[in-house]
Simulated scan of single mutants.
Amino acid sequence: MSYIDEIIEAYYKKYNEANNILTATLSYVVEPNENQLSQIKNYLAKKYNKETVEITMIEQPELIGGFVLKVGDIEEDNSIRGRLNRLEKKLTWR
């Protein structure tokens, strides 16, 4: 029983691979409407050459605005907080 979580995770991973399903996580401040969510799914489906995209949505007010999209180890940060962090790094680097 101590391995049940790993077994379930491995099963879902194999199932998604076999059925050409991509899983992603979308962190947001304001929940996207259906049109925006559809555009995000289409973008991911084309980028990763998948038929189906399943998105787990997480509300994160600390992002200030925008969103963060994660697929596996790849993260696309389009949030205000991320932009401020990148600007801070650029300014302190000089």
Rank of each mutant, 00 (worst) to 15 (best):
M1L: 05
M1P: 10
Y3V: 00
I4P: 05
D5N: 02
E6W: 00
E6Q: 04
I7L: 06
I7E: 05
I8D: 13
E9C: 10
E9I: 02
A10I: 04
A10F: 00
Y12E: 03
K14L: 14
Y15A: 10
E17H: 11
A18Y: 05
N19S: 09
N20S: 14
I21Q: 01
L22T: 09
A24I: 03
T25D: 06
T25P: 03
T25I: 08
S27A: 15
S27D: 10
S27H: 12
Y28I: 05
V29K: 05
V29C: 02
E31P: 06
E34V: 14
N35T: 15
Q36Y: 14
Q36T: 15
I40Q: 07
I40L: 06
K41C: 05
N42R: 00
N42K: 05
Y43D: 06
Y43R: 07
A45Q: 01
A45W: 03
K46Y: 11
K46T: 09
Y48C: 01
N49W: 06
K50Y: 09
K50E: 10
K50F: 09
E51K: 15
T52Q: 13
T52K: 12
V53W: 10
V53Q: 05
E54W: 15
E54L: 13
E54T: 15
T56E: 15
M57F: 07
I58A: 08
I58F: 06
Q60F: 13
Q60W: 07
P61Y: 09
P61I: 03
P61K: 10
E62D: 08
L63T: 00
L63C: 03
L63W: 11
I64V: 01
I64K: 02
G65Q: 10
G65V: 04
G65L: 10
F67C: 11
V68R: 02
V68I: 06
V68W: 02
L69Y: 01
G72E: 09
D73M: 04
D73K: 08
D73V: 04
I74C: 11
E75W: 08
E76F: 15
E76W: 14
E76N: 11
N78A: 14
N78Y: 13
N78K: 11
S79N: 04
S79G: 03
I80E: 11
I80W: 12
R83L: 08
L84H: 07
L84N: 11
E88N: 01
K90Y: 09
T92V: 12
W93T: 11
